[in-house]
């Protein structure tokens, strides 16, 4: 039985809270981290180990969710495209504790928008519990977020908040699949 894989990428600049987000989720959900991904030998694929932030959640015998964190540093940008290849959706986490931090995310966000224009995604504005946090309309304005893309508040250390954001992204992916099935 072929195993279906839903690939979700967690993107965002260095220090935005990507690793914290996956760590918080793994406290609630049965996400395995720090385990090698292997390709099935029976399907003629070689075994490969991935060296990136990574989590895997088994939903059914034939359905798993892979969470890939991309390294936020600019010097690894050439890897972003490779890691993101074949993804079903991505969560773009930003540090929203100040306008300067939000502006720092603009280049990387544009990179993803340009390279993956039709991939479902949402933006998670992390650190919304900080008193100086930037409000959502201002974030939309700074990042020039298309009107159809959701920008959601996030506190990556908060389980409820992290789960809510993940479910929202999955709902976006589901809507996208429904649309493409309808018109495809």
């Amino acid at each position: 039985m072929p195993v279906k894989t839903i690939k979700i990428v967690i993107a965002g600049p260095y220090g935005a809270g990507k690793t914290t987000f996956v760590k918080t989720l793994s406290e609630v959900l049965p996400i395995e981290t720090d385990v090698p991904i292997t390709k099935s030998v029976t399907e003629g694929k070689r075994t490969t180990t991935v060296a990136f932030d990574y989590g895997r959640m088994k939903v059914r015998e034939d359905l798993v969710v892979h969470l890939f964190g991309v390294p936020g540093q600019e010097r690894f940008s050439f890897m972003w495209k490779i890691i993101a290849r074949g993804m079903h959706g991505y969560l773009f986490i930003i540090d929203s504790s100040s306008e300067e931090k939000v502006k720092e995310a603009l280049g990387m966000y544009n990179f993803f928008r340009e390279n993956f224009p039709s991939t479902p995604h949402i933006i998670a504005a992390n650190k919304q519990d900080v008193p100086t946090a930037v409000d959502i309309p201002t974030i939309k304005n700074i990042l020039k977020v298309p009107y159809e893309v959701k920008v959601m508040p996030l506190i990556a250390t908060n389980r409820r908040s992290a789960l809510f954001v993940l479910v929202s992204l999955l709902e976006e992916i589901r809507s996208y699949l429904l649309e493409t099935t309808k018109y495809g």
């Binding site: 279906k4 894989t5 969710v65 074949g86 589901r174 699949l177």
Partner: peptide, 24 residues
């Protein structure tokens, strides 16, 4: 290229994603 996993391309349906949401 060698280091990054090629996700096996089996088509995902809206029902699969719904199952993930319900699982969570």
């Amino acid at each position: 290229e060698e280091e990054v996993v090629e996700v096996i391309n089996v088509e995902i349906t809206p029902k699969d994603v719904e199952d993930v949401i319900n699982f969570i």
